[in-house]
């Protein structure tokens, strides 16, 4: 390996560690939002509870969309690593659509709850719900924007080393969000509907 290649590898390793540490700090944020949610489950102020508001089918559909999107992102990563531009962009597009579907379902769910007077300002429980699930949704939206930007970069610059390495970090982000979702349906939706 040449001196330049060695430095490039070191730079990418440092970026990957740095991004991983950011994800760890994000994990702490989510963990504390989960803790706050658990603490405030009974804070319904005589208003709507999870049992009354949550829809199992919707949560199941969101789960499927996100899980499949994690897999299709994996396919995009494989294409990128083998230099397959079309494959990478194609699978990124599929991932994007699945992600958009997820965000659409979530926004519809939120709008529905607000329409029946169960918005985040109704009770502590609902504040915690909207903030926890909403923070996840905002992260997913940022991820979708990032997918668009990466697609543009692949089109404009090709699968260069920096581009592929950025795609790797986007992958870390995207899979991390799916892990957070596992937490959300396991702590919010399923116990709420029990």
């Amino acid at each position: 390996m040449s001196e330049h290649e060695r430095e490039e590898t070191e730079t990418q390793e440092q970026r990957n560690l740095g991004f991983w540490l950011y994800l760890m700090s994000d994990a702490v944020i989510f963990a504390l939002l989960f803790a706050t949610y658990a603490i405030m489950i009974r804070g319904t102020d005589g208003g709507p509870t999870g049992k009354q508001l949550f829809d199992l089918n919707n949560a199941a559909l969101e789960t499927v969309l996100l899980l499949v999107s994690s897999t299709t992102f994996g396919f995009a990563s494989l294409s990128a690593r083998t230099g397959n531009r079309g494959g990478a962009i194609g699978w990124l597009a599929v991932t994007f659509l699945l992600g958009v579907g997820f965000v659409f379902l979530e926004v519809r769910e939120f709008a529905g709850m607000i329409a029946v007077g169960a918005g985040p300002d109704r009770s502590g429980f609902l504040s915690a719900f909207f903030t926890l699930v909403g923070t996840h949704g905002v992260h997913v939206t940022m991820g979708l924007l990032w997918i668009l930007i990466m697609s543009a970069q692949i089109v404009l610059k090709g699968l260069t080393a920096p581009v592929v390495s950025r795609l790797y970090r986007l992958g870390l982000f995207w899979h991390f969000l799916d892990i957070a979702w596992v937490g959300i349906f396991s702590i919010v939706y399923l116990p709420g509907l029990l």
Binding site: T71, G74, F75, S77, L78, R81, T82
Partner: peptide
């Protein structure tokens, strides 16, 4: 697509 990697994701 690389077979080994594909299997992992599936």
């Amino acid at each position: 697509m690389e077979q080994h990697g594909l299997r992992t994701y599936l």
